[in-house]
């Protein structure tokens, strides 16, 4: 049986979908590829550009249980220049997604701060979706001394 390139790709996509479906197995970690896939999935294949969104994280987090992070997006938050949402991903946590912030014109400024758990040293990624459909991304590495997964 010879496989065409198309069949191989279709099989690969199916296998990936299956992997996501059974991906709830504990101790399975997200990988940078998973993050890329979920970003592509979530934002309809729009390639994220750099700039506009700024992610502020500590370079070294002593305690992975509470890592302060903040994001801000350069936007007037009026008319067409509006940020719809910012999603935070981590590529070495049990699940890639961390949180999604939704903004409105009443937010005034698209910035948010929270505290997150990081299992190990890894990249934290912020992806901002603008009302006009463009997508921006920022990524920072955080070195974690003590992981935050407990157990």
């Amino acid at each position: 049986m010879t496989l065409t390139r198309r069949q191989v790709l279709a099989f690969g996509a199916g296998a990936a979908a299956f992997g996501i479906a059974v991906g709830r197995i504990p101790a399975a970690m997200a990988t940078p590829e998973d993050v890329k896939a979920s970003i592509a999935d979530m934002f309809g294949g729009v390639e994220p550009q750099s700039g506009t969104v700024a992610l502020n994280v500590p370079e070294i987090a002593e305690n992975g249980n509470t890592v302060p992070i903040s994001v801000s997006v350069d936007s007037a938050m009026e008319g067409d220049d509006l940020v719809e949402s910012v999603t935070i991903f981590a590529d070495g946590n049990p699940s890639a997604e961390i949180a999604t912030f939704h903004f409105t014109a009443m937010s005034g400024a698209a910035d948010a701060t929270t505290r997150i758990r990081l299992a190990k040293t890894q990249n934290v990624i912020a992806v901002a979706k603008m009302a006009n459909g463009s997508v921006f991304m920022d990524s920072r590495e955080v070195k974690v001394t003590i992981g935050g997964c407990g157990g």
């Binding site: 890592v67 938050m77 903004f103 409105t104 005034g108 698209a110 948010a112």
Partner: peptide, 22 residues
């Protein structure tokens, strides 16, 4: 609506948020 957030298990205990409003 002003601001909302979907949380995953990777948000720390005692979830803290700081955000803006006009």
């Amino acid at each position: 609506p002003v601001f909302s957030c979907d949380l995953e298990p990777a948000v720390s205990a005692n979830p803290y948020f700081e955000f803006s409003a006009k």
